[in-house]
């Protein structure tokens, strides 16, 4: 039987087989590293998500500082995870394993920028965030994280109106409209995740506009009251 005799004659110690054994080791090592990075990424995601929920408690709260301090502690608990990623990917092309931890990084960028926005009313730049990531943060992950931030800003805008905070909504409107104008110009870059998130940004933008619209109209009811002229009263103390 020719098949049998050929397969029996294969030298399992040939240089060809040796190189395939090396390939096996390489492929396995790659896969193992990828798995380890995915696990770290999932850990980062879950902590970041919780930080974001905590931060929403700031809206209308009298004790913002306590919440911020709590967040700072949680952020520092993420630091060792980033160190692990840094060690795993050290001296490697940063794009080689980027897909393994992009989810975690985006969520973390979202948490960090949201924290910064609520505490300092400003957007933290890529350059400022980069050290926290020990240089492992890609620009695209920063952009995607900031796009997620706009969703949280929108939520904060809606809540703040209810909480009697009349400044935050207009601040968010101004921030979002600037970001929107800039980000929408990113469109030509063909990147599926980016396009999806840009679409969500447009929706958030419209929600914030609608909220500011009714906030504005409520002020204008003064005019209506005057018009109705049966309920004249001094409304100045209402604001």
């Amino acid at each position: 039987n020719i098949s049998k005799s050929v397969s029996d004659s294969i030298d399992m110690n040939s240089s060809l087989m040796e190189s395939f054994r090396t390939f096996r080791a390489d492929l396995d090592a790659h896969q193992d590293k990828y798995e380890r990075l995915v696990k770290i990424s999932r850990d980062i995601t879950i902590i970041s998500k919780r930080i974001i929920f905590n931060l929403h408690r700031c809206v209308g709260s009298t004790d913002r500082e306590a919440i911020f301090e709590e967040c700072v502690t949680k952020f520092s608990s993420i630091s060792p995870l980033i160190s692990s990623i840094q060690q795993e990917t050290m001296d490697l092309d940063p794009y080689l394993y980027a897909r393994a931890y992009t989810n975690g990084y985006q969520e973390l960028v979202e948490a960090l920028t949201f924290y910064h926005f609520l505490r300092y009313s400003s957007l933290v730049s890529y350059q400022h965030l980069s050290p926290f990531f020990k240089g492992t943060l890609l620009i695209i992950d920063y952009v995607l994280g900031v796009l997620d931030l706009t969703g949280e800003m929108m939520r904060a805008c809606i809540s703040s109106i209810t909480a009697g905070d009349m400044d935050t909504p207009l601040q968010v409107l101004s921030f979002l409209s600037q970001m929107n104008l800039h980000l929408q110009q990113f469109r030509p870059f063909s990147h599926k995740e980016l396009s999806n998130k840009l679409r969500t940004l447009s929706t958030s933008m419209l929600k914030v506009e609608k909220a500011c619209y009714s906030l504005h109209l409520r002020g204008c009811s003064v005019a209506l009251i005057a018009f109705e002229d049966d309920e004249e009263r001094d409304l100045t103390d209402m604001y």
Partner: peptide, 17 residues
């Protein structure tokens, strides 16, 4: 052309804010 139209469109978006 697309580039210039995109810029035109974006600049007109300023009417909203």
């Amino acid at each position: 052309l697309e580039e210039s139209v995109r810029e035109l469109y974006t600049s007109l978006q300023a009417i909203h804010n």
